[in-house]
Design a binder for these strands. Structure first.
Lengths: 300, 300
DNA sequence: AGAGGTTACGGGCAGCGTAAGGATC
DNA sequence: GATCCTTACGCTGCCCGTAACCTCT
């Protein structure tokens, strides 16, 4: 009676405003969801959901129950974190990751995560931060490592790491020895993150010189392509040096000093409150450790 | 996973420090309890209970889990009270009742309770208050209507009703017209509640007259027997007039005024916090209404 | 016709109760 | 031997998934 699983299912139906989406989210079938909700309603002797053919909405009692369901899920998370061994944690976490993180410490994170939580399946999606922000809000992601805090209610942001942005050039691109002025910089095409992201908008703003018109900024959603383009001397790229540590070490690429003040990229682990299983919080914690620990070269 | 039923069972095992007692309490068999606990332990990958052959004790993790289990049960109660129709409530409530209550408004309470919560089974035990206090502490009762607040931690007391104590005599017992002095009173045997109860100890205290020795106090755990003894002119009884409303109305018994200050009997509905199902709290609430509503004669 | 929810049906498995086993006093 | 928990085993009933159905756009 009053099974917690039913409440979890009801919670997701309420969140996603759809039986079928909830079924997908919970890795089950739509009839199963339908049945659980029906059972819950008959058990409580209360109608919880108004089924209009085209969309569903919660009744008053339903709205109250969502609140309780959320408290149940939170309590379960807290309980599992408090008493269960990590091996006991299981489930699927939909993790969104910014490509910058992929190029730096994601693999280390995945290793550790799998070691600590061997029974947790992590589903990774690589995308740009604005998309992931939307996906978090619409509950398509459980957790994301992305750029900047997400200032939505019910979102928890945990700071992971700061990466400075630098101008990067191929070793054989002649850019002189002195720090570049703004006018020097705009002689080259600039290669950086996609238009929807903060680095792009910032560069577009700061590099605008009225007499010269728009700077040439090439964007690419694939970091490795940006790196490749830089190696091919297409232009200067603006990325964190941390993602090209190998190329810097081998001298293939180098940092070009400039007189421009570039902001740091701040990454956060962001997740909605009250997630089922409570996997998001400990994984964010783990990511925080990984992101701030010594670099792998120090291990050897 | 992390079924609330398992937590409920674990909670009772912890409370009663016994698998078999928990099984009895939950209307199931001892192997079923054993199995649930084993499943819980393997699910959390944690040992929860130290099984010594002669007694069991909780591990550290077990102690933490009891706390969470209690919070789950409380949350479930709150949820059911908030969203469920009363008909959805079901289960067994072990109710202890003082005989005074039986003689006054218990039947009305049972009627209403059955009307509002048709699927709740109430198991009534009539006993004296000190026994019920022990039974509450040892969790053999879920709820009791008894004398005075029970000042135990984790017990909730809700005031139900005050009944004045009076000296009662048979109509044909000659006791004069004037209010009786203490010396008048002790000429008669006094018939009242059992030795373990507050009225007895109070009377024994107040009626002690050094020159005359101990007053004769007959005690009886059956109120109706006390009434019968009073009718049979064995002596004066000290009981609340409310329990003999019919006999007073018919003139068979009468109140005898005395110069003694007798305390009121204060009844409370008392139950341990964090009970499963959340039935105790609403039933106590209902009892409070019944106990304070107009008397049945006013209905007609 | 297609999206979205309900109803019908069959199979798998969890959980319960009965019964037997084992350990300690 | 008595008490108390565990293990073994068969059965019931729940829950899930497949599939057919309904309804509204």
């Amino acid at each position: 009676m009053a099974d917690i699983r039913s409440l979890e299912i009801f919670y997701w139906v309420a969140q996603l405003q759809s039986f079928s989406k909830a079924a997908e989210r919970l890795n089950t079938t739509q009839p199963a969801v339908s049945q659980r909700i029906a059972a819950l309603e008959s058990e409580l002797r209360v109608k919880l959901i108004d089924r209009s053919p085209r969309s569903i909405s919660l009744t008053d009692k339903g709205r109250i129950l969502v609140d309780y369901a959320e408290r149940f899920l939170r309590l379960r998370s807290a309980m599992l974190n408090a008493v269960a061994e990590p091996e006991a944690m299981s489930g699927l976490v939909r993790l969104g990751v910014s490509e910058t993180i992929v190029q730096t410490w994601l693999s280390r994170f995945m290793e550790r995560a799998h070691a600590v939580y061997p029974n947790v399946v992590i589903d990774i999606t690589v995308d740009v931060s604005p998309n992931m922000r939307d996906a978090l809000v619409s509950r398509e992601l459980d957790l994301a490592f992305l750029l900047g805090p997400v200032s939505e209610p019910n979102m928890i942001n945990q700071r992971l790491c700061d990466y400075p942005l630098k101008f990067i050039a191929a070793h054989n691109l002649d850019v002189g020895k002195e720090p570049l002025s703004k006018r020097d910089v705009v002689k080259y095409p600039i290669i950086t993150y996609p238009k929807t992201t903060y680095p792009y908008t910032f560069l577009r703003e700061i590099l605008s010189i009225p007499e010269l018109g728009m700077p040439r900024i090439f964007t690419n959603s694939s970091l490795s392509t940006i790196v490749r383009m830089t190696q091919d001397r297409i232009g200067l790229s603006v990325i964190p040096p941390d993602v090209i540590r190998d190329e810097l070490a081998s001298g293939e690429l180098r940092i070009v000093e400039a007189e421009l003040e570039l902001p740091n990229l701040v990454f956060t682990a962001t997740y909605p409150m009250a997630l089922e299983g409570g996997l998001a919080a400990p994984l964010a914690q783990l990511a925080c450790q990984i992101a701030n620990q010594e670099r792998p070269e120090d291990d050897k």
